[in-house]
Structures are given as C-alpha cells and as structure tokens.
C-alpha cells in the first residue's frame, strides 16, 4: 500500500466520521430536551401512581440512604419513595418502592428494566407488583423459596421475580437498620 492510498483512506474515514458526528450532534440536540421531558414526566407519573394524594416530593438523605419525601397539601410527610437497584436476568432492574408512615409497602413500580420481553418483562404487571402491598419483610420471599413467603413468582421468570423480591426485602432491612 503506497502513501497516497493510506492518505485517501485516512481522509475518507475522517470525513465520514466527522459528518456522522456532526449529524448525530444535531439529532442529539433536537431530541435531548424531548427525551428528558419524557423522563421527567414519567418519573413524576410514577411517583404520583405510588402516592396519588401527594402534592410535593423532596429529595432527602438519612444515613447514606437517598429517598423522596412525599408531602401532602398540608406539607406533612405521608410517606417515602425509595429507589432500588437489583440484578435481574437481563441486567439491573430499577424499582421505585413507596413506603407509608407505618413502614409498610404502599406500592411498587418498575422504573427501568431489560428483562426478556414476554417473560421477565411481566414484572411490570400489576398482578405481580400488587402482591407486595402491605407486606412486611418476613413475608417478602417467593412462595417456592420459603414457607413464609407470600409472593407468587411469574411463571417461567423465576430469576426476575426473585431479583425483585430480594431487592425489596433488602431495602426494608436497610430501612429497619438505618432509618428507624
């Protein structure tokens, strides 16, 4: 390969990459605000789904645990929302767990996940997540794993189900140790 060929090769790749980079920068600039707006709205929607009566959410931290303090119209704290990260079948699953004043689970919502579509992805269904409402940490085991477990796994998606159960139980244990 002579010098001229090497030079053309480099020039072409540089040109194409530069063009592609420019194009992507433009697309990124136009879509970024939109993507962030969607994320914000979804986040807000998720929080409201957990605490429909909430008016305001404030970020707080106790002993290294971050959470959202949920306030009602009288500015009283009616509960907390925690984010839990737990390792599922297709990577990390991000959960939002709402805890009421009596430290019972108010509601659980999936924020982000990469589980298998059609199988593990069923963790987002209410029929699975509603099982956690009102449970305490002693009962947050899969029925098939422990005799005092009260959670039914999703058929064919034991790994995903167990990841969520373990993540939520660990959160409740952390809360028990560090916050109360």
């Amino acid at each position: 390969m002579n010098k001229k060929e090497i030079f053309t090769g480099i020039a072409v790749i540089t040109f194409i990459c530069g063009l592609s980079g420019y194009l992507l920068a433009q697309v990124y600039k136009t879509t970024k605000p939109k993507i962030e707006a969607i994320k914000r709205i979804e986040e807000e929607k998720l929080n409201k789904e957990i605490f429909p009566e909430a008016v305001k959410f404030e970020e707080k931290e106790i002993n290294g645990i971050k959470y959202l303090s949920v306030l009602n119209s009288n500015n009283e704290e009616i509960g907390k929302i925690f984010e839990v990260k737990t390792l599922g079948y297709g990577g990390y699953i991000y959960l939002k767990v709402g805890i009421d004043k009596e430290n019972k689970i108010k509601k659980v919502k999936i924020k982000e996940h990469n589980e298998t579509p059609g199988l593990g992805a069923k963790i987002t269904q209410d029929s699975f997540l509603n099982q956690f409402i009102g449970k305490t940490k002693e009962n947050i085991y899969l029925k098939k794993d422990k005799s005092n477990g009260r959670i039914d796994a999703i058929t064919g998606a034991t790994v995903s189900s167990r990841a969520i159960v373990d993540g939520i139980r660990k959160l409740l244990e952390d809360i028990g140790e560090k916050i109360n």
């Binding site: 194009l23 992507l24 697309v27 990124y28 879509t31 939109k34 993507i35 969607i38």
Partner: peptide, 10 residues
Amino acid sequence: TITDYTLAAF
C-alpha cells in the same frame, strides 16, 4: 443512533 434517539423521544 438516529433511530435510537428518535424512538426514545417519540
């Protein structure tokens, strides 16, 4: 990447 961003936005 264009498809990725666009789908994420819309």
